[in-house]
């Protein structure tokens, strides 16, 4: 089986896992939760294998490089990072409810990679601008940061659901009861934001070093650079609000959601603008 067909299956598996997480929330049965975790874990293992197979395959083609060099590969890696982060959080907090919110994000990224008509899934050789040792460190740090911000966003949505008006529907009430306490969510949002912020800082720094070698300038106000700075500023504001002004809960969750909008624009929206970072265009 080729890595692309494995990845198509993984997309499906993540969707099934999402349904199980949802089911475990609606029926509040631990059994479905365990099934959901098992499914996600199986998908994740297959996902990891497919990445390795793709990496090896690129060497077989004589154009060996890490699978982090085009839009398809970035989406696959992004989904991989989101699931990794989620599984770590589930393991640390022993709470499965974020699964119903985070796993669908990974599924959407995978679905976009596999199904979107404009995304080329072929292994392409590295153009001269990407032939750099900084490629791996820059892309890995940036996409791990995006993944952390994605998880923070999902937790922010959970925060608002938990706080929202009590609904009459029984299923939804139980659903909300299974969402962790707002204080726990607040702490998790903060930790994800911290992780994302540190990684984004590293991503911007490694990107600057690379830009210095490739474009002759460590900062040239390219739209991608500018938007990553905007994202950085939003999360910097979030962290200052929390650490200095002692903001908690709602405002923080709101900032995590807004910050994620900036992340999305940095990742996808910037491709619509002219600039130097055109490698992700399909």
């Amino acid at each position: 089986m080729s890595h692309t067909s494995i990845l198509s299956w993984v997309t499906f598996v993540y969707f099934v896992s999402f349904l199980f997480y949802l089911l475990s929330m609606l029926r509040s049965e631990a059994f479905w939760g365990r099934i959901a975790t098992g499914t996600a874990l199986a998908g994740y293992v297959a996902h990891t294998l497919a990445l390795i197979i793709r990496w090896i395959a690129s060497y077989r083609l004589g154009i060996g490089h890490v699978p982090l060099a085009n839009f398809y590969e970035s989406l696959i890696f992004f989904a991989w990072a989101v699931v990794l982060l989620y599984l770590l959080i589930e393991w640390r907090t022993r709470n499965r409810s974020p699964g119903a919110f985070v796993v669908p994000c990974a599924f959407l990224a995978m679905a976009m990679a596999s199904l979107s008509p404009g995304v080329d899934s072929r292994i392409q050789p590295l153009i001269p601008a990407l032939q750099s040792n900084w490629l791996t460190s820059h892309v890995v740090t940036c996409f791990l940061a995006y993944a952390a911000f994605t998880v923070a966003f999902a937790l922010g949505i959970m925060f608002f659901l938990k706080r929202g008006e009590v609904s009459k529907q029984n299923g939804l009430k139980r659903f909300r009861e299974l969402i962790p306490h707002p204080e726990v969510l607040d702490e998790l949002i903060y930790q994800c934001a911290v992780m994302g912020f540190i990684l984004l800082t590293l991503g911007i720094v490694t990107g600057s070093v690379w830009a210095h070698y490739a474009w002759g300038s460590y900062w040239s106000w390219d739209p991608k650079e500018t938007w990553s700075l905007i994202t950085w500023l939003i999360y910097a504001a979030l962290l200052h609000a929390r650490l200095v002004r002692r903001w908690r809960g709602g405002p923080l969750a709101l900032m995590a959601v807004c910050g994620f909008a900036a992340v999305l624009f940095t990742y996808f929206g910037v491709n619509l603008l002219p600039g130097l970072h055109t490698y992700l265009q399909t």
């Binding site: 106000w221 700075l229 905007i230 910097a236 504001a237 200095v244």
Partner: peptide, 26 residues
């Protein structure tokens, strides 16, 4: 720190403009 956050927002907003309005040669 309010000023800091206000400046963060102002710089972010200016940067948004800078990516939508064609700059320099463009």
């Amino acid at each position: 720190v309010k000023l800091t956050v206000a400046l963060f927002i102002a710089i972010a907003f200016a940067s948004v403009l800078g990516t939508f309005i064609p700059q320099q040669e463009a």
